[in-house]
Every structure is written in C-alpha cells, then in structure tokens.
C-alpha cells in the first residue's frame, strides 16, 4: 500500500497495537485528509450568505465550517468537491471553481 494511502499513522508492530484490532482514538479520520480528491473547489461568497445551513446540512463530508450558527467557510482539508452545496444553496452564493485555477491563490479557507 502506498504511503499516501497509509496516511500519517506510523506503522506499528503487533505488540504495540491495541487488542481486538481496536481503534481507540474516536474520529481520528480527521488525520486522513480527503481534500486531495477534490477537482472543484467551492467558494462561498460569505457577504451574501443567508446562513440557512443547507450547505452544512447537505455536505456528505461535514466540511462546511460553522461558528456560532454562522457559516464561515469550507474546510478544504476534507471537502471532496462534490458540488452539492453549490446546487442546494438557495441564494446561489457558492461557486465551484477548478482547483487548477485556484491553486495559485494559496490556502484560502
């Protein structure tokens, strides 16, 4: 298996692993960043965002960042770029942009 698929977790010997094939760190998939799958990036025009939460509700990946009941952006570490948020936004304030186009403008999230 490739290093990329192995993710960040170090390879442990059998004596170092918990019994029963257990994973004892809940939700540690946050260390596995699926954002690399993305071809299209959602850009939210936050000024026009009605904060209806539909994008948050319909995101399969829980990648819409919400603070104090306000949408504040997209967590690009996980967003796979499906585009559902853009279709379901009632005000159409989310646009899907080719990753290649935005790659130059770094880390805007």
């Amino acid at each position: 298996m490739s290093d990329r698929l192995r993710g960040k977790m170090p390879e442990k010997g059998w004596k170092e692993l918990p019994i029963r094939g257990l994973i004892i760190e809940p939700g540690n998939s946050v260390n596995y960043e699926t954002g690399s799958w993305r071809a299209l990036r959602p850009i939210i025009n936050l000024e026009k965002c009605p904060h209806c939460m539909f994008c948050w509700l319909f995101c399969p990946d829980g990648s819409i960042i919400v603070k104090n009941s306000q949408v504040t952006g997209v967590d690009l570490r996980y967003c796979k770029g499906c585009g559902i948020c853009a279709v379901e936004c009632p005000r159409q304030v989310i646009t899907m942009v080719e990753e290649a186009e935005v790659a130059k403008e770094t880390n805007v999230w």
């Binding site: 946050v30 829980g62 796979k80 499906c82």
Partner: peptide, 13 residues
C-alpha cells in the same frame, strides 16, 4: 468525523 472515504457526493454521508 470528516476524513471518511465515502465517494464525493455520497448520500450516505
């Protein structure tokens, strides 16, 4: 948590 590997756009998530 995010970081699961369902296909993009999967309704299950």
């Amino acid at each position: 948590a995010p970081g699961h590997r369902l296909c993009l756009g999967c309704a299950e998530g």
